[in-house]
Design a protein around this nucleic acid. Structure first.
Lengths: 187, 187
DNA sequence: TTGATTATTTATCTTATGTTAAACAGATAG
DNA sequence: CTATCTGTTTAACATAAGATAAATAATCAA
C-alpha cells in the first residue's frame, strides 16, 4: 500500500489513523492481462489504484469497441459515471498487462468520510484533478485533426504507444484503426 | 439567494449557520448581455450560480472562437481548469443574455470547508456531478457524426437552439457554422 | 517449428465535413 | 426608414477520414 499512500500525499497529508482506516477497507489484487476487471452493466463500487500494470475503460457503440480512457501505474482507475450516480455502468474495465491493484471499497470509503473529513478532502481533491483532466481532454477533441490528436498523445504519453495495441488507441482518439495507421505512415 | 439554497438541497442539506456563512461570502450581480464576465488569462476565484439568464465558456484556437460549454439558470458556472489548479484560465466567460448571478468567493469558500465539513461535502457532490456530465460528453464526442451530435443537443436541450446564436453552437458541437447550417437544412 | 489467430498496413473508393465566397435575412443604430 | 452590421444559408470545390477488402506482419498455441 506504500505507493498508494505516497500518491495520497500529493493531495492531502493523512493522519496515521486515517491511513489505517483506508488500509482496513482495501485489498491487493493480482489480475492477469486481458481480463475484464469489471464487466458492462455492473455498478461500480470500487476505487482502484494501479500499483503495477495498466488498464483501459471501454464500451460498445453500435457493436464497435471504443476505448474511453487508459490508466497507468500510480494512478486511480474508476468508472466515475457509475460510482457517483449509483447506476450500472455502460462501460467495462479491461486489464491490459498483468497488473497489481489496490481495491478500495467505495461504500466503506464513503462511510469513512463522516469519521474522517481529511479522507473526504483527499478524495475530493483527487477527483477534482481528474475532472480538470477530463475538461482539458474535451478541448483536445473539439477542434483538432486526428493527426494533431495523435501527435499530442505521442508527446504527452509516448509510453502508451509502446504498451497498448493500436486498435485500442484509435478509438480513444476517435478515429478508425485504418486512419490511425495512415497517419502513422505519414512520418 | 433562495434559488441557490434550493439548488444546494439537491446535493446536501445545509444547517442554517452554513447557509448564512455562504451568504456572507456571496454577492448578487446583474450582468448585461454580451459582456465578458471573466476574461482570458484571469485566474478564476469565483463560483457563479445563475439565477436568471445564461452564459458560455469559450476560448480561441488558432484565432477561431470556440464554445467549450453553455450554462443556464439554476446551475453553476465555473472555469474549473483554473479554479482547481490556481492557474490563469485560457478561457473566458461571456454572458449571453441579461443575467442575474450569485458570485461566491472561492477563496473564502475553501476556508469555510474547514469550519463546515457539510459545505465541503456539498461542493464535492456538486462537482462530482459536473464531472460525470463531462465524462458523458466525451462519449458523445468520440464516435458520433456531427448530425448525431446536433440531434442529441436538440433533444437534450432544445432551449439552447432558441436562445443561442448558431455560431456559438457550431463550435460547441465541434463543427463549422457552415456544416451546422447544412445539417439543419437537411430536415 | 508450424499453423492459426490477431494486429497492422496498404489500396481503392466513398462520403462527411472543411474552406471560401457570395447571397440573403434579421437586428440595430442613426 | 434606411444603411450598416451581424448572423445564417447556399453554392462550389477540396480534403480528411470512413468503409471495405486484401496483403503483411506479429503473436501465440499446439
Amino acid at each position: 500500500m506504500d505507493l498508494l499512500f505516497q500518491y495520497f500525499k500529493k493531495y492531502n497529508q493523512l493522519s496515521k489513523e486515517a491511513e489505517e482506516a483506508i488500509a482496513a477497507i482495501s485489498s491487493i489484487q493480482q489480475i492477469k492481462k486481458n481480463k475484464d476487471l469489471q464487466p458492462i452493466g455492473h455498478t461500480c463500487k470500487t476505487i482502484y489504484f494501479i500499483n503495477k500494470g495498466m488498464a483501459r475503460i471501454y464500451y460498445f457503440k453500435d457493436g464497435v469497441d471504443i476505448t474511453e480512457s487508459f490508466a497507468f501505474e500510480n494512478n486511480t482507475l474508476t468508472r466515475v459515471e457509475s460510482l457517483f450516480t449509483g447506476k450500472p455502468s455502460r462501460k467495462a474495465i479491461q486489464i491490459l498487462e498483468d497488473s497489481e491493484l489496490v481495491a478500495i471499497s467505495s461504500v466503506k470509503l464513503f462511510e469513512l468520510y463522516d469519521r474522517f473529513p481529511e479522507i473526504e478532502r483527499l478524495f475530493r481533491r483527487i477527483f477534482e484533478a481528474a475532472y480538470v483532466d477530463t475538461v482539458n481532454r474535451i478541448e483536445g477533441m473539439q477542434f483538432h485533426s486526428a493527426e494533431e490528436r495523435y501527435n499530442a498523445l505521442l508527446s504527452e504519453a509516448p509510453g502508451v504507444l509502446l504498451r497498448v495495441p493500436l486498435k485500442y488507441i484509435s478509438s480513444y482518439l476517435g478515429i478508425t484503426q485504418v486512419s490511425l495507421s495512415r497517419i502513422r505512415g505519414m512520418r
